[in-house]
Design a protein around this nucleic acid. Structure first.
Lengths: 132, 132
DNA sequence: GGGGAAGTTTACGTTAACGTAAAGTATGCG
DNA sequence: CGCATACTTTACGTTAACGTAAACTTCCCC
């Protein structure tokens, strides 16, 4: 049972390599809402997960608004039918976007491989100016 | 032989669903450099490809500076050894980042699948309030 | 009890990537 | 010819996502 139950803002900042300003900014945007002990913020494991999701979103080029939406998707409130259907629609849109990103990444990987190969060729050409 | 050899700014804007302002901005940032016929810009197929690469980069969350770097990677000037090695280093960094994005996407896809499933469950639960 | 480390609030500053508006030019058409 | 359409330049405006600075409190430690 070594799992910490709470975190300070500094701990999280170090773990995720962001500034405390960034974490406070996310709170301002209602992305996390830590408890307080006096003035001091006290973060729960849930807050930590939320942070992780936001940063993953950033790596994929999502705005904070988009990440917020994604996070909310994970908690379908005991909603009404229409809201659930709307949610499924958004989920499908995200899936489409992710598939597009996958295709983009694969194309880019191929091009990087080619570029790397051209580097290799140029380097060996430097070693042997002629076919010795 | 139906391949167009030149494009107007309006054509490209329509094709890629961006504004002409955006394309001129990219020129300002030295990402494309169209020819001129009088005052009017005339874009080549190469310019069009560059635009395509920039927009793909955007879908992956790249800044214009990053996309510029990527595009330059495709044309290793008959460089000196050190520059080629530095280029290979950058290529490897990009590859690492792309692999991270791949992992992020896969995790997100799984979570979206789960969220979708929970929607389905909630919906069927709405149909049959009890197990009839 | 003086200081250093980590926390806090408040507030103005900054950068990227365009948006938007104004005012002018060139070209085809009925 | 007059007008619409598409192009041009110039320039100020805007939004997101923090950075940065100032001034303050709290806690711990020797």
């Amino acid at each position: 049972m070594s799992k910490k139950q709470t975190y300070s803002i500094g701990e999280l900042a170090r773990e995720f390599d962001v500034t405390t300003r960034t974490i406070r900014f996310y709170e301002d945007q209602n992305l996390v809402n830590p408890a307080r002990r006096g003035q001091t913020r006290v973060y729960s494991p849930a807050d930590r997960v939320t942070l992780k999701l936001i940063l993953r979103g950033k790596r994929l080029g999502f705005s904070l608004a988009e990440s917020r939406e994604l996070i909310q998707m994970y908690q379908p409130s005991g909603d009404n039918r229409n809201q659930l259907l709307a949610l499924q629609d958004k989920i499908q849109q995200r899936r489409d976007q992710l598939n597009q990103q996958l295709r983009d990444i694969q194309a880019l990987q191929q091009e990087l491989d080619d570029a790397d190969q051209r580097c290799e060729d140029a380097l060996t050409a430097l070693e042997k100016p002629d076919h010795v």
